[in-house]
Computed example of a mutant assay.
Amino acid sequence: MFVAANKDDLLMALKNKEPYILIKGDYKKEVIKLADHSLSEKETLGFDLGSAGTSNILAELFYQLANKFSNKPDEIKTIESKLRKYKLKKTNKDEIILYLRQLDY
């Protein structure tokens, strides 16, 4: 399990597609805030089924367009984009675990 304590550690872990990333301490709050922008599988399930799966393509297109015109720093854009491939699990009040969504399948 990769342990990330700051933005640089998290970027490295996300770029390496680490299967499990442990976030400890104060940086945990920032990661939770960044991860809250994406919808969960339960929230998108009905829409995905109704659109026969094509909604993912359109959603990704809109996300990329919005991200391109955003005023956020490039590092934050990269983190948010790569966090979409991970699920967040709170283990206790001081740490969270990010794990690849594909590990659920």
Rank of each mutant, 00 (worst) to 15 (best):
1 M>A: 14
1 M>H: 05
2 F>S: 10
2 F>R: 13
3 V>D: 05
3 V>R: 09
5 A>F: 08
8 D>P: 02
8 D>Y: 01
8 D>N: 04
9 D>M: 11
10 L>C: 09
11 L>A: 03
12 M>L: 13
12 M>N: 04
13 A>E: 10
15 K>R: 14
16 N>M: 14
19 P>N: 12
20 Y>W: 13
20 Y>D: 04
20 Y>V: 14
22 L>I: 15
25 G>L: 07
25 G>F: 10
25 G>Y: 02
26 D>F: 05
26 D>H: 11
26 D>T: 10
27 Y>V: 00
27 Y>T: 03
27 Y>R: 03
27 Y>I: 02
29 K>R: 12
30 E>C: 01
31 V>Q: 02
32 I>R: 07
32 I>A: 07
33 K>Q: 07
35 A>R: 02
36 D>H: 06
36 D>K: 05
36 D>M: 03
37 H>K: 15
37 H>N: 14
37 H>C: 11
41 E>P: 10
41 E>F: 13
45 L>H: 14
45 L>Y: 13
45 L>S: 14
47 F>I: 12
47 F>L: 12
48 D>Y: 09
49 L>C: 13
50 G>H: 04
50 G>I: 02
51 S>P: 01
52 A>H: 12
52 A>K: 09
53 G>N: 11
53 G>I: 08
53 G>D: 08
54 T>Q: 11
54 T>H: 04
55 S>H: 05
56 N>D: 15
56 N>S: 14
56 N>L: 04
58 L>R: 09
60 E>R: 07
60 E>T: 13
60 E>M: 07
61 L>E: 14
61 L>C: 04
64 Q>F: 01
65 L>I: 06
65 L>N: 07
65 L>Q: 07
66 A>L: 07
66 A>H: 06
68 K>F: 03
69 F>N: 01
69 F>E: 06
70 S>R: 02
71 N>P: 01
71 N>L: 02
72 K>G: 00
74 D>T: 01
75 E>S: 09
75 E>F: 00
76 I>C: 00
81 S>K: 04
82 K>S: 04
83 L>G: 12
85 K>N: 14
85 K>V: 05
89 K>I: 01
89 K>C: 08
92 N>Q: 09
93 K>L: 09
94 D>W: 05
96 I>V: 05
96 I>P: 03
96 I>L: 13
98 L>P: 03
99 Y>T: 07
100 L>N: 06
100 L>W: 06
100 L>V: 06
101 R>F: 08
102 Q>P: 03
102 Q>L: 11
104 D>F: 09
105 Y>F: 13
105 Y>H: 10
